[in-house]
Design a protein around this nucleic acid. Structure first.
Length: 882
RNA sequence: GGAGACAUAGCUCAGCUGGGAGAGCAUUUGCUUGACGUGUAAAGGGUCGCAGGUUCGAGUCCUGUUGUCUCCACCA
């Protein structure tokens, strides 16, 4: 069977089949199991409108790695998946689709529209889930949830009621961000500021009853229609005499007062600010302080309303143009200055948002923010990397009340009812039949829905059954790690944390693992408009899911952005192929060899060395994984497999298969190859689930899957520190010889007799023990090991290591000049080392203050380099004489 | 205006609690050795942005500085 494996790894032949197997075997399913410890991750629910992009791919790869790791460690590891209804995003998509059919949202009515929305969800909502499966995601799909399913909706209602009863949810007229295109309010977090080139229009406001005027500067002249005052700083002597006087508001017949407010900066602009309480958050505050009238001049689509007089009906920008023109004609426009300023836009549609006063529902944040801040201080909540904790704190410290109502249909409808007669507000799960205040029997439900993030905020516990006290909630909650991008801390992480504390009394998770963005090869954000996005499915198609996953975690530290290069995917694919072929080699050579009687005492040096190495690797990788250093852990597994295992150990072992007849030795090699490979595959499995599973299953039959096999643990009986040194010595010797041969262009086919000269008996022993592979790896015709130089001709070149000199009689091939050059270079390197070492050991402060082990270490090095230097000098002298 | 991140080999990036500078790709040169050329062996290439400081010792800690980026605030 083994030899049937193809010469190169072909993921397309394997991935779907294995995923199907995992699904059928229910390996992803986590049960409440009192005999195990729980480990839980909630998947950030992708939007039902979503298509898998690199961000998802990265996010889910990290989660899958953690979940697979913990599952192998014996936890009942739950990765709780689901999707988000994504109110605005979805509603916009459906409206667009209706438009193609020539239908307006209003034509369908609320009921009809929702029907279409649910249809849409049924059709496309599962798309992203099936894409996540292509990644190898081992989420518990049996528990898949949706933010608008029955349970989640119940949780939303429950929270709304509780917060309302507590007075944390209130309805009020506040200045909010309004999107004129989406026609809904949006929260502060959804406003994205963009730098735009604009102008400063300096406009004269004539003083009533006097000749003079006041000059104000504005970036938005059209809002003049809503001005109800002009403010100056109370300490601004230029204007104190004007405070209390009235100004004639240009282009209107209104008169407005000059007021004094410290909000005004004397140094900025003209020092006079027009105050438009209805269309600017700061002016709104000023207006409140001075009891100013709030004049809303805009319709919901950002055209001027009837308060705008003759400009009524014009778009905001058209009105601006016309008004500026008229001001100029009237001589009231002083000047226009170019000005770059930040304009708030809606993050979904990029429309410039309009601050407006609207009656909306809000969540009071002050009290709920407190435990969320406390959580970070006490360490109940940690960010990886830590720096993001500051972002989190800063936002919480400056938090404002959260506008949660949206003028949309797709979402959780606000459970508030208004009495048709007296207007009483009743918040209730069910439609109330009677008004508790006036007894009227007709109440109408609030038409608005809740911000999508209101339900996402409950995700860690609503998905586990809350508000019901389910066994799942009891067992899996609080969850452990939340994995997400730094761009979503404000939207989601913070809201989950304060919701968790408010509703369940605990933080919903103890660690937030933050990752960066996947950018294109030029460092640009991948975006639809740029068309520079790379489809993860295309990558999987070409190189396999394992290669994609590996690419996404290699060489990347938490929280940092990364660039996507096809070259890197290729490198990952090459590694997969390497693993594949090493395994193929092992299968071919171990087939039919009985290893059942092999004991640790049968192992040869090389076997013990690699076993010891993989043993320590397991320990280190586990430590790295526990610290969320996933990139480092993978790098270590990669280096081990490619360098130590493939390039060294497999090469060391080959003579035992090809030449020797020693069955015992062969069996030991087979056992070691298989054992070490399995250990390495297990360590690699969380990163590359498919290829590791395929090989694992081909290698052995007792266990049915690597993904439910036990994670390698360090074991004392596999620790062979002494042997490791001996093999490292051999490697050094081989490298030294290869170096000599390479520098003289001796092809491997040209075998040489090698004489190893080592004074110490233990060194000669080490060479003797490893003679077989040493001969092969150094391309020797023969290896003679001796204590002195007896019988070695003067024409031999030499390779020097710390405790041995290897002589290679290659006289006819040797270019003396080259050899002298090589040795001179080596001499120079050693001189540098010696200088450094002498410097350190000659420094008495080092001797007196550094730890003893460091000093001992340094002394050893000094001794080693001194010996090597002597040898090199001797060889040089010999050559120069010749 | 406030905060944070990054600055290491030609390119993209690792480098954990301070103790002899690394990987991948690229470049140059060998290799039809019976797992793999998606391979293998070697080579070149870095004053770890700059300046101070702490320390026996700093890429790693502290301060300052320059440059790039991000987030928050939004002075109209």
């Amino acid at each position: 069977m083994a030899t049937n494996l193809s010469k190169t790894y072909d993921p397309s032949q394997i991935e779907d089949r294995l995923y199907q197997k995992w699904l059928e075997k229910k390996y992803f399913h986590a049960e409440v199991d009192p005999n195990k410890k729980p480990f839980t991750i909630v998947m950030p629910p992708p939007n039902i409108t979503g298509q898998l992009h690199m961000g998802h791919a990265l996010d889910n790869t990290l989660q899958d790695i953690l979940i697979r790791y913990k599952r192998m460690q014996g936890y009942s590891a739950l990765w709780q998946p689901g999707t988000d209804h994504a109110s605005i995003a979805t509603e916009v998509k459906i409206i667009a689709k209706l438009k193609e059919e020539g239908i307006e949202k209003e034509d369908l009515g609320r009921e009809g529209f929702l029907e279409r929305a649910w249809d849409w969800r049924k059709e496309y909502g599962g798309r992203i889930i099936s894409q996540l499966k292509k990644m190898g995601s081992s989420a518990d799909w049996d528990r898949e949830r949706f933010t608008m399913d029955e349970g989640c909706s119940e949780a939303v209602q429950e929270v709304f009621m509780k917060l309302y009863d507590k007075g944390y949810i209130y309805k009020g007229s506040r200045i909010i961000n309004w999107c004129p295109v989406c026609q809904t309010s949006i929260s502060d977090a959804e406003v994205e500021y963009q730098e735009q080139e604009g102008h400063f229009w300096h406009i004269k406001y004539p003083i009533v009853g006097e000749d003079g005027f006041v000059e104000i500067a504005t970036t938005r002249p059209e809002t003049l229609l809503g001005d109800t005052a002009v403010a100056v700083n109370p300490e601004d002597e230029r204007y104190t005499h004007l405070v209390g006087k009235m100004l004639k508001l240009p282009l209107t017949d209104r008169e407005i007062p000059v007021i004094a407010d410290s909000y005004v900066d004397k140094e900025f602009g003209t020092g006079c600010v027009k105050i438009t309480p209805a269309h600017d958050p700061n002016d709104f505050e000023v207006g409140k302080r001075h009891n100013l009238e709030e004049i809303n001049i805009l319709n919901d689509d950002a055209t001027i309303n009837e308060n705008g007089g003759k400009y009524c009906g014009m778009d905001r920008y058209e009105a601006r143009r016309v008004m500026v023109e008229e001001l100029e004609q009237q001589g009231l426009l002083v000047k226009v200055i170019k000005h770059v300023h930040n304009v708030g836009t809606h993050d979904r549609c990029k429309t410039t948002v309009e601050p407006m006063i609207k009656k909306q529902w809000f969540v009071a944040m002050e009290e709920m923010a407190k435990p969320a801040m406390e959580a970070l201080k006490t360490g109940e909540l940690k960010f990886v990397p830590e720096a993001f904790g500051k972002t989190y704190m800063h936002w919480l410290e400056n938090i404002r009340d959260w506008c949660i109502s949206r003028q949309l249909w797709w979402g959780h409808r606000i459970p508030a009812y208004y009495c048709d007669k007296c207007g009483e507000i009743v918040v209730s799960r069910e439609q109330p039949s009677v008004c508790p205040k006036c007894g009227h029997t007709h109440l109408t439900q609030d038409p608005d829905t809740l911000d999508t993030w209101f339900s996402s905020a409950l995700w860690p516990f609503s998905t586990l059954g809350w508000p019901k006290k389910t066994p799942e909630l009891e067992y899996f909650y609080p969850t452990d790690v939340l994995v997400t991008g730094y761009d979503i801390i404000f939207f989601w992480v913070i809201r989950m944390v304060f919701s968790g504390y408010e509703q369940t009394g605990v933080s919903p998770f103890h660690t937030v693992l933050i990752h960066g963005l996947v950018r294109d090869s030029q460092g640009r954000k991948m975006s639809k408009s740029l068309g520079n996005g790379i489809d993860p499915l295309e990558v999987i198609d070409k190189y396999g899911a394992d290669a994609l996953r590996m690419t996404l975690v290699t060489g990347n530290a938490p929280g940092n952005d990364m660039r996507f290069y096809w070259e890197r995917v290729e490198a990952s694919r090459n590694f997969a192929n390497k693993v594949w072929n090493a395994s193929r080699f092992i299968m071919m050579n171990t087939e039919g060899v009985d290893t059942s009687a092999v004991e640790l005492s049968d192992l040869e040096d090389a076997d013990k060395w690699i076993l010891s190495k993989v043993n320590r690797l397991a320990k280190e990788v586990t430590e790295n994984m526990d610290k969320y250093e996933l990139g480092i852990a993978l790098q270590k597994v990669y280096d081990f497999i490619w360098e130590e295992f493939c390039d060294w150990y497999i090469e060391m072992v080959k003579p035992r298969f090809y030449n020797a007849e020693d069955e015992r030795s062969k069996a030991a090699a087979c056992w070691t190859l298989t054992t070490v490979l399995i250990q390495a595959l297990k360590l690699l499995h969380p990163y590359m689930p498919f290829i590791t599973e395929e090989i694992f299953c081909n290698l052995q039959s007792e266990e049915e899957s690597i993904m439910i096999s036990a994670w390698p643990e360090y074991r004392a009986d596999w620790d062979f520190a002494q042997v490791e040194n001996r093999i490292e010595r051999m490697k050094e010797a081989v490298r030294a010889i290869r170096n000599v041969r390479a520098s003289m262009n001796v092809p491997p086919s040209k075998k040489a007799d090698i004489f190893v000269v080592a004074e110490k008996e233990e060194v000669r022993e080490a060479f003797t023990t490893s003679r077989a592979f040493f001969t092969a790896l150094s391309n020797a015709a023969s290896v003679t090991i001796q204590a002195d130089k007896t019988g070695i001709g003067e024409d031999a070149v030499s390779a020097v290591t710390a405790d041995a000199v290897m002589y290679i009689p290659l006289a006819e091939l040797v270019d003396i000049e080259k050899e002298i050059a090589r040795l001179t270079k080596e001499e120079k390197r050693l001189a540098g080392e010696l200088k450094r070492s002498h410097g350190m050991l000659g420094n008495e402060r080092f001797i007196s203050k550094a730890p003893a082990e460091k000093i001992a270490e340094e002394r050893e090095k000094l001794e080693k380099y001194t010996q090597m230097m002597e040898q090199v000098k001797e060889q040089l002298a010999r050559l120069q004489k010749a």
